[in-house]
Design a binder for these strands. Structure first.
Lengths: 321, 321
DNA sequence: CTGAAAGCGCTTACAG
DNA sequence: CTGAAAGCGCTTACAG
C-alpha cells in the first residue's frame, strides 16, 4: 500500500496511465489532439484514482476563474431572488459559476464583502444593490469588471448599470389610482435613497397636493389618521414591504383596504400575493434585468465599454386598490 | 515606462524594496522575524505598487482556502437568513470567509451546487437544507467536512448535524391551542419531508382526532370549509408560509382569525409579523444554530468527530391564536 | 500524437 | 534577519 490519503494529481494519473502529465491535462480538458486509446486509458485511470482537478492550480495558471461574484444588499429581500436567477441562468450558459455574498443592508459590510469577492478572485462582480457609494464602486471597478443592478447614488463610468425606470413605474401607480377615482394620494417611503427619491419626484409631478410620509418618523400612523378623517383616500408606497405594513396597520385600526384606503406597492414581490388584500404593485422585469447584467459583465470581460440599461416596469393590479 | 498593465507580484515588490521575495512574503504575512526597516520598505513598496496577493496561488501552496461554503435551499426563505448570519459571525471570528450558493428548491440543482462549492475549493460546507439525500451528503462528506442544518431524510454518520426539536416545537403549538380552549385542531402541511412529518407525528400524539390537510391537494379550501361549518376551530401549520396562506384565504372567505379559526405557524419568520393578524409561531434559535454549525465545521476541520445537536424551540404568541 | 521544460504567484523549509 | 531553492498542481508553448 503506497497509496497515502493525499489527493491524487495529474501526475498520479499520468503514472497510472503510463503517459506524461501534459497528455493527461490535454485529455482531461477534452483537447482534440489526443489519441482515442490514450484518452480512454487516462480517463479510466482518473476515474479509478478518484481524481479531481485542483481548482486553485487551474485558476492560478489560467489566470481566470470563470466565476462571477454576486453581491446582495441582504438575504431577506424577496425582490432580488429573480434577479439572481436571471444572472445564474445567463452565467451558466456562458460557462460561469456564481458565488453569492451579502451585506446585511450595511454599507460598511457591503464594502467589505465586495472586497472579499475581489480577493477571492472572481472574474467580475454584479452588485445587486443601491447601497454602495460611487467611491466604493469605482475603487472596485478599477480592479475588476463591475455591473450594478439597482440605483445607488451614482454609478461610476467604469461600471455597467442595469436598473428599472422608477419614474415610469411611479407614474403607472399614480395613474392607476387616478383612474380609480382617487384625488388625495399620499406617498409613503422609508429612505432617502435614489430609487425612492425618483419615485417620489415622479409622484410629485403628477399629484396636485403631494403629502409625503416617512415610516421612520411614524409616517404610517400619521397617514392612517389622515385616512381616518377622510383627508386621504390612497397611498403609493416606495416598496411592497412598506405597502404591506400600511395594510397591516390599517387593518389593526379598522380602516378598510381598499374601500377606505387604496394602497399600491412597488416590486411585485411574493409578499404582494401573500397579504390580504393582495397588493397592487409595480413589477420590474427582474429575471431579464439579471440576464442583462450578466451579459454586460461578459462584455466588460472582453474589453467592451460599460453600458447603461433601463428596464420598463409594469403594473400588476390586486385587491388593495 | 516599463510598467505594463500586469498585476504586480511579490517579485515586483521585492525588486522595488530591494529584498528577496521570501522576505516580502514573510513581511506581508506579518511574520515575526523581519526587521522593522525591511518591513517598512516592503509595505511601502507594496502600497506604492498597489500590490494585492493572488488568492489562487496562496491557496494552492497553503492547501487551505479559509473559505466555508454555505448551501441554501433557495433564496426566498426568510427562515435561513438568521442562520446564515450566525454562521458568518462565527466564521469571521475564526478567520473564515463565507461564500453562498443556493438550489432554487430543486434537489438536482442543489446537488450540482454542492459539487460546485467543493470544486471551488472551500474547506468545508454547511448545507442549510433538508432537500439533499443521504447519498448526496455522504458523497460530499467523503471529500470534505459537511455540516447539515435542517432535517433531510437522513444524515450520514460522516456529517455533522444541527436541527431544531420539531417534536417539542409542535408540542408547544398544540398545547397553546389547547390552553386557548381549542379541541378540534387541524394540521396543514405542504410536503412529506421529515421536519413536516416529525411535526405531524407530535401533533397526532397530542390531538384525539387528528385531521390533516395537504395544501398541494387543495387542503386549505377543505380546511376552511370545515372551519365554516364549525367542525374545526384551530389549525397548526407546518410553517409560517402556509399559516399566512391559511390566514389570507380565511380572510378572503370572511372567516375571522382568530375568532372563527385560530392559526399557529412555525419558524417565526418576518412574515409572521407582517400579515394580519400576526402569526403565533414556533421560533427556532436560528442564529445560535448557525453558530453551532460553524463550530462543528471547525471541529471537523481539525479532525474531530461529527456531532448531532438539537436546539430547543419556543413559542411566540401573536394575534392569530 | 506525445513528452520535457518552463512558468503561474505564492509559501515552506533550510542555509547562512 | 535574509536569501536561494524547491515545490504546490496545473497549463502553455515548443520540440519531436
Amino acid at each position: 500500500m503506497t497509496g497515502s490519503a493525499r489527493r491524487p494529481t495529474i501526475i498520479d494519473v499520468a503514472h497510472a496511465a503510463g503517459v506524461s502529465k501534459s497528455l493527461v491535462s490535454a485529455a482531461l480538458r477534452g483537447e482534440s489532439g489526443v489519441s482515442g486509446a490514450s484518452r480512454e486509458r487516462i480517463l479510466a485511470a482518473a476515474e479509478e484514482l478518484g481524481y479531481r482537478s485542483n481548482g486553485w492550480a487551474q485558476r492560478l495558471v489560467s489566470g481566470r476563474s470563470d466565476l462571477v461574484g454576486v453581491l446582495l444588499t441582504d438575504l431577506r429581500n424577496a425582490y432580488q431572488t429573480e434577479i439572481v436567477n436571471g444572472i445564474e441562468d445567463a452565467a451558466a450558459a456562458a460557462g460561469f459559476d456564481v458565488v453569492l455574498s451579502h451585506g446585511r443592508r450595511d454599507r460598511d459590510l457591503l464594502r467589505t464583502r465586495l472586497a472579499g469577492l475581489i480577493a477571492l478572485g472572481v472574474d467580475a462582480v454584479i452588485a445587486v444593490t443601491g447601497h454602495l457609494d460611487a467611491d466604493d464602486l469605482s475603487a472596485a471597478a478599477g480592479r475588476i469588471p463591475i455591473v450594478v443592478v439597482g440605483r445607488p447614488s451614482s454609478v461610476p463610468d467604469a461600471a455597467g448599470w442595469v436598473r428599472n425606470d422608477d419614474e415610469t413605474g411611479a407614474g403607472l401607480a399614480v395613474a392607476h389610482l387616478h383612474e380609480r377615482g382617487h384625488a388625495r394620494i399620499a406617498y409613503v417611503h422609508g429612505s432617502s435613497r435614489p430609487a425612492s427619491i425618483a419615485r417620489r419626484d415622479a409622484y410629485r409631478a403628477l399629484v396636485p397636493e403631494p403629502r409625503e410620509y416617512d415610516v421612520r418618523e411614524g409616517g404610517i400612523d400619521l397617514l392612517l389618521e389622515e385616512a381616518s378623517s377622510g383627508g386621504l383616500t390612497a397611498a403609493f408606497a416606495a416598496n411592497d414591504r412598506i405597502a404591506a405594513q400600511v395594510v397591516a396597520d390599517a387593518t389593526d385600526r379598522g380602516i378598510r383596504v381598499p374601500q377606505d384606503l387604496a394602497v399600491v406597492g412597488y416590486d411585485n414581490t411574493e409578499l404582494a400575493d401573500l397579504v390580504r388584500p393582495g397588493l397592487t404593485s409595480v413589477d420590474q422585469p427582474r429575471s431579464a434585468m439579471g440576464a442583462a447584467a450578466m451579459s454586460q459583465a461578459l462584455a466588460l470581460l472582453e474589453g467592451g465599454a460599460p453600458a447603461r440599461e433601463v428596464a420598463s416596469p409594469a403594473l400588476v393590479v390586486r385587491g388593495s386598490s
